[in-house]
Design a protein around this nucleic acid. Sequence first.
RNA 1: GGCGACGUGGCCAAGUGGCUAAGGCGAAGGUCUGCAAAACCUUUAUUCAUCGGUUCGAAUCCGAUCGUCGCCUCCA
Length: 467
Amino acid sequence: MLIFNTLTKKKEEFIPLNPPKVTIYVCGPTIYDFFHIGNARTFVSADIIRRYLEYKNYDVMFVMNLTDVDDKLIKKSNEENLPVEKIAQKYAEAFFEDIAKLGIKKANVYPKATEHMTEIIDLINTLVDKGFAYNVDGNVFYDVKKFKGYGKLSGKNVEDLESGARVEINEDKQNPLDFSLWKKAKLGEPFWESPWGNGRPGWHIECSAMSMKHLGQTIDIHIGGSDLVFPHHENEIAQSEAACNTEFVKYWIHCGFLNINQEKMSKSLGNFFTAREILKRFNPNAIRLFFSQTHFSGPLSFSDELLEGAEKGLEKIYNLVQRIESIAPSNDSGLITFEQERYLFAFESAMDDNFNTSQALAAIYDFTRDFNKYLSKNEKVPVEVLDSAKKFLKSTLTDVLGIQVFKEAENRNSKEDELIKLFIDLRTKAKLEKNYKLADEIRDNLKNIGVILEDSKEGTTYKISSK
RNA sequence: GGCGACGUGGCCAAGUGGCUAAGGCGAAGGUCUGCAAAACCUUUAUUCAUCGGUUCGAAUCCGAUCGUCGCCUCCA
């Protein structure tokens, strides 16, 4: 299995530190607002990576942090006149609701910065003791020049960055690139006691501390958006490796942005939709399919039209699932079978190559087309064929890509089912009497309430519109 | 200014040295149907931004040009 590693800029064979265990850390949200659909893309991508590793029988330990104290939270707290904890609590709840709707599997741990102050302070202490950090009047900074490997992830060097001159000017810093490990509390800000006085941690240090605490000094995979490569992840490496003298992360995985009109969707540009809004308008399975159509590392443009296209694709798969479920399996011998191994092979080969979901989907669509064809040609279908088809769709779409396809049918209410069948019978009678006007009226009216009738040789079936 | 990514059919998007350039959406025609829908079939890129080069052979490697975007400041 190959994974593209941002650190080496190459696809590398994936060899976990302690197989079958795999440790994954994902940079989660700062819980000061609802997350947007671009954030959702990264969360879903990380979820698919995790699901595929589990599919491959790895024992995955998955950690996603929640940043619950920082400048943005403090700002929001002032705006809404609520304590920082309340803001954090509110948006943490919203976060869990939204990721559940998106079908994202729960992490093993969701560590929060405020619950790891001891670990954070210990880590800063180590860095100060080792001479990698310095204290200026209660503000502790990391001394970038002390860490030889600084820039190895982002491909930047300290000199280039200095000449860039876009770095914030702070007279306390020895070097403009040095970053905060501990921020001295200003009046009215939340604070924790520390050897350097009251204050709070800088943004980068929490990830180092929490990753170490929950997953160990060296982890297998660290996932985040491309905009975190520099400075966030670069700084995490500097902190962790300086403190531990061991490699921090074996494989760095970065996700591409969601673009609107060819521009990055971001809070600061204001061109974003919250995942919440989008979930109100689109089926979460269609959203996940939409994400999977493009490789996670590249940019993905976002629009209603594109999402509607994904909905149509999903519909095609739903139709096949429904068709499979409506068929009575046969136990006759000598029936024609369907060879489905090659589709699974194609799917796995694609996923093995750096989680190439768009190629993996092609295998699923090929299966969909060919299996539809098989069903049309064969009146009787053996039990094993139906079972293996279901198994294929479930393990590829649902288990790995997180797209639910079998749920709809299970949720069908039996009263509703009887009622609809009553209408179908009435319409069938009308059709026999060649009363097509009435037949069409029944069909049209049912369609208007989201029940779609389909005639075939075997009779009329119905499906509930996915919208 | 420094660093980096990308440019494939009407749209989205795989493929990154060698079988007929995946797949989805859309469009057109057809099979089936009372008509639809669904499903299936056919058509829709002699060509991969442009121009050069390397090679027996390039969308894929190299160079130049044009265009788009990102990071260097909080950001997934």
